[in-house]
């Protein structure tokens, strides 16, 4: 984070459909959007903003495989090699063990994916997030535009925001 103050223009949108059109309108006019903050997930917003699909499912898959491998290794080693025991006349390693493969796969996949989500989204209990407009968790959609990363003037961006459906345009410095 730079030590000099960062200047943002903040467009407030009252409705998710106006916001979606607004995002297209603003981007078409060559304005770079820093981020949009919403009180609820807006379908299609990630595509409108040009975000790539998240790779979290891949993380979940890898963690799941780790769980399967851990369960397999644990059981084969414990019951097959470390202390081989015949229980109820069954063979040492048989398919009924698969319940733990499934459980550990699910457990590690879920926990690993959620941990990855927290890390990549930089979410932690002691973090105070930047608030561009406090109503963004209530009922407003908030579009933040970093003035430093845009060539257009503040007045031009403000006008584009209003034309794209923003009900208010405010300035916010950090």
């Amino acid at each position: 984070m730079s030590s000099t103050s960062e200047k943002f223009l903040v467009g407030i949108f009252d409705d998710e459909d106006i916001l979606l059109h607004g995002v297209d309108g603003v981007r078409d006019k060559g304005v770079k959007i820093h981020e949009v903050y919403s009180p609820f997930p807006v379908h299609g917003l990630d595509e409108a903003l040009g975000y790539k699909r998240t790779r979290l499912p891949i993380a979940a898959f890898i963690f799941g495989l780790t769980g399967t491998a851990l369960a397999l290794t644990m059981q084969i080693w414990m019951l097959g090699y470390d202390w081989p025991m015949i229980i109820g006349g069954k063979t040492l390693l048989h398919c009924l063990h698969s319940f733990r493969y499934f459980e550990l796969t699910v457990l590690l996949s879920a926990l690993g994916m959620v941990a990855t989500f927290f890390i990549v989204s930089d979410m932690k209990p002691y973090k105070t997030p930047r608030s561009y407009d406090i109503r963004s968790t209530d009922d407003k959609h908030v579009m933040a535009i970093d003035l430093a990363s845009n060539k257009l003037s503040k007045e031009d961006i403000s006008r584009i925001l209003k034309e794209s459906g923003a009900s208010e345009v405010n300035e916010k410095n950090f």
Binding site: E35, V36, V42, D46, P129
Partner: peptide, 12 residues
């Protein structure tokens, strides 16, 4: 966890 409601966070 310091939730900010960013579009990227919502997508994830």
């Amino acid at each position: 966890f310091g939730w900010d409601g960013a579009a990227k966070t919502w997508m994830r």
